[in-house]
Every structure is written in C-alpha cells, then in structure tokens.
Amino acid sequence: MAERLHKQRQTSDRTGEVSAEPGAATEQGEKLRAELDDLLDEIDDVLESNAEDFVKSYIQKGGE
C-alpha cells in the first residue's frame, strides 16, 4: 500500500488530478452538483430571513 500511495502522490503532484475510478467519481460529482443546485434553489426558504440580525445576535459564552 505504501508503494501505491507513493505513486499516487507523485501523480497528484505532477498533474494535480487523481482518480482511481473516473466513472464513479464523475457520477458522484454529478450527484453532488445536482444536490447543490436543488439546495440553492430552495435555500432562501431555509435561511434565516434577516441574516444580518441573526448573525449579530448569535453570541455564545466560551466553554470547555
């Protein structure tokens, strides 16, 4: 495994792209993109209506 890792690392250093299974990666990439598009379509319904106030009022005490 160490040897394989080393090869992959060299590949990634050289080309900046690595994918063991191009088909699977593309499919997954498309799925993620589709989900992101759907989320962006509806995000304004989910997001706090007054972002400015919400962010300002979000104050916590330190913990631990």
């Binding site: 992959q8 990634s12 792209e17 690595v18 994918s19 063991a20 990666a25 990439g29 993620l32």
Partner: peptide, 20 residues
C-alpha cells in the same frame, strides 16, 4: 486507512470528490 487515502487523494486533486 482506505478512507484516509481517499480523502488525501481527493484533497490533492479533485477537491469536489471529497465534498461528501
């Protein structure tokens, strides 16, 4: 170990592949 390798590979290359 296999997830560790997958995630480093993705971070070094196609970042989107590890957005999940």
């Amino acid at each position: 170990l296999s997830l560790w390798e997958e995630v480093l590979t993705g971070l070094a290359g196609d970042r989107t592949s590890v957005a999940n």
